[in-house]
Design a protein around this nucleic acid. Structure first.
Length: 600
RNA sequence: GUUUCGGUAGCUCAGCUGGAUAGAGCAACGGAUUUCUAAUCCGUGGGUCGCAGGUUCAAGUCCUGCCCGAAACGCCA
């Protein structure tokens, strides 16, 4: 929020109390005046009275006096240590909507604070299609990248695909046995779903064999599934296949390439629909051996140590993380070793200032350890690594579990929401008036609903996804925000038809109603919200703001007509206010990778 | 056991560096449309902010302890 009277108040107070030396970065930040207080903005003097070592009440009195005589101010009223300010019509708009290009145009951060940011997200496994959990990850990652870019950072988006390992072999084994040569083409099934079917099929067979095993051997009854895995025929087969893969067996590699290509084709469609793109995609099959050389180096330097059996460990007791194995006694590497390797690879390829991982909160400990190790290894950039740990998505019925078939499939969810959006649109346009862009519109609304529904929560909270509630497009939703834009688009179209042109000579003084002023005041907060949202890496701050702005518009819409206003000058002023409001809302949604339909 | 994250209205969640009488959406109930899109707007009811101490002029917010929930603490990824 940036108003001239606030800047002047700041100068006035600084001049009056020169001994306080508040520093140059100090500013007076006002809030929206609470509805019942009767004002436009509120200055909370508690916040900065400390700087002057004065009684907040005294500062408030002086501030109210100063503001009362300020040319921009209609009224300034002191209540306790708050000063509620009513701005004059032209002043309230002058520093916000009237200068919309300054709000929408430039990056938010000053040049010195812009950095090169590497964001890794998605990181799917190529053995099954993506589900709601992935959708949250994709949405958070993509919108974070977009938001960081919006505020001025140079962003590199990275996907690290988990395309090898025992879980991939499971699908392959099941396909060999039960696949009957099916392909996405022959079965008409999307590639990732087809492969996922065989992953499930493997599990069914494994359960059957586990049950048989336990029945035959009573003493195995108390063993876990994991412990018995290699005692089942199918489990052993999967393990054998993994070893063959690692040995480069041509037959296994060929099947692996074929099935993975199906999955990649499927993922590409899912990503495209979500509007997700990456600058680089790394494949684990090409990076999983990285990190081993670091281990040797670390032992030589004394950062790591060799245990009697030959395994290599690092001691992290001093940072309360215990000891961590980095190389097994048999010389094979572990997850951490790989991650050390890929982190280094990503750094060398991109040389970022900051690296961010969008990964579930169950891996908080892993990343703490990873960062601690890199610091011990002496990399200065290790100070700038962040794990954006997001919470799980639960259903009203409990946790999502692939095995129990309780996952919400990403593609199904998209289809369902888009179909609902389409049905809702059809219902409101009436019979025989199907818009030609209905499919594109429905896609924007349906996907917007899903994304907004995931982004309006703080990433770290474990959220409850209620399918019943999520199919509604009313209230705190993406479509609500989009709807405000659609209404404005409609006004703009009709204004054009009526030959109403905004022009350059807008008389902002005319937009003096409470609703019109509120729009301006809210818009003046936009840049601060963007900055804060990016800084906290929390999309919910921006979502909350966009809801408030859309709400303020809807209130205005209810109270004041644009096209039926008393005179053309007022029509033009209101039209300009509306269009600029929409531009801000659309910019905010775009920063979250949500589109706006032309009409709804 | 240790660590981390949660606990705010019937439900789902906001509440930034402590500041006015704790907010929103949904659900419930009652209103609003000769007017630019009702995917809208307005109103009513609904709260010991997990509990107990402490710091402060001021605590949902900071500190300590405890209770409850989730996750992590692998030579799985």
């Amino acid at each position: 929020m940036n108003y001239r009277c606030l800047d002047d108040l700041r100068s006035f107070l600084s001049g009056k109390y020169p001994d306080a030396k508040p520093g140059s970065d100090w500013e007076i930040v006002a809030d929206i005046c609470p509805a019942e207080m009767n004002g436009d903005i509120t200055v909370n003097c508690f916040r900065f009275a400390k700087i002057f070592r004065k009684n907040p009440d005294q500062i408030a009195t002086e501030s109210a006096e100063f503001l009362s005589s300020h040319p921009d101010v209609e009224k300034a009223e002191k209540i306790k240590a708050f000063v509620n300010v009513t701005l004059k019509g032209e002043a309230v708009h002058r520093d916000t909507v009237a200068k919309i290009n300054e709000i929408l145009g430039s990056p938010i951060l000053p040049e010195g604070k812009r950095q090169k940011v590497l964001i890794e997200f998605s990181a799917p496994n190529t053995n099954k299609p993506q589900h709601l959990g992935h959708v949250r990850n994709n949405t958070i990652g993509m919108s974070l990248a977009s938001l960081m870019k919006r505020v001025g950072h140079d962003v590199v988006r990275i996907n690290l695909v988990n395309d090898r390992g025992i879980h991939i072999c499971k699908s392959m084994i099941a396909y060999q046995r039960f696949g009957e040569g099916a392909t996405p083409e022959s079965s008409g099934r999307k590639g990732d779903h087809l492969v996922g079917d065989f992953y499930v099929r493997f599990d069914q067979e494994l359960r059957k064999q586990l049950a048989e095993l336990r029945e035959k051997n009573g003493e195995l009854k108390d063993k876990t599934d994991e412990e018995l895995f290699l005692q089942t025929e199918i489990g052993r087969s999967a393990q054998d296949m993994l070893q063959k893969w690692e040995a480069g067996d041509p037959e296994v590699k060929s099947l692996w390439l074929k099935m993975n290509s199906w999955v990649f084709a499927g993922f590409a469609k899912t990503y495209e629909r979500m509007g997700i793109e990456f600058e680089h995609t790394y494949l684990e099959s090409q990076t999983y051996l990285l990190g081993k050389d670091l281990v040797e180096e670390g032992v030589k330097k004394g950062t790591f140590f060799k245990r009697e059996d030959g395994a290599v460990l690092i001691d992290l007791e001093d940072v309360k993380l215990g000891k961590k194995v980095l190389l097994r006694a048999d010389g094979t590497s572990v997850y951490m070793t790989q991650d050390l390797g890929t982190t280094l690879l990503k750094y060398r390829d991109n040389v970022p200032d900051i690296q961010i991982w969008v990964v579930g909160d169950e891996q908080i400990h892993h990343f703490k350890t990873l960062f601690a190790i890199l610091k011990k290894m002496g990399y200065k950039w290790a100070e700038n690594l962040h794990h954006l740990a997001y919470g799980m998505v639960n259903l009203p019925t409990g946790k999502m579990k692939s095995r129990e078939g309780t996952v919400v499939d990403a593609d199904d969810l998209f289809d369902e929401m888009v179909a609902l959006a389409k049905a809702a649109t059809m219902e409101r346009v009436g019979e025989g008036k199907v818009p030609e862009d209905i499919d594109r519109r429905s896609e924007i609304i349906g996907l917007g609903a899903i994304k907004f529904n995931l982004l309006k929560f703080n990433p770290k909270t474990t959220i409850m996804f209620d399918p019943q509630a999520s199919i509604k497009f009313e209230g705190d939703t993406g479509p609500y925000v989009q709807y405000a834009c659609a209404r404005i688009n409609s006004i703009e179209r009709k204004a054009k038809e009526a030959g109403l042109v905004i022009g350059d000579d807008i008389n902002w003084k005319l937009a003096s109603s409470h609703e019109e002023k509120e729009l301006s005041v809210r818009i003046s907060q936009y840049r601060d919200v963007l900055r804060q949202s990016a800084e906290k890496m929390d999309s919910s701050t921006l979502c909350e703001y966009l809801l408030e702005l859309a709400k303020a518009f809807n209130r205005f819409y209810r109270e004041h007509s644009v096209l039926n206003a008393d005179n053309d000058e007022l029509k033009r002023t209101r039209l300009a206010l509306c269009c600029r409001t929409r531009d801000v809302v659309a910019d905010g949604l775009k920063s979250l990778t949500i589109d706006v339909p032309a009409a709804m």
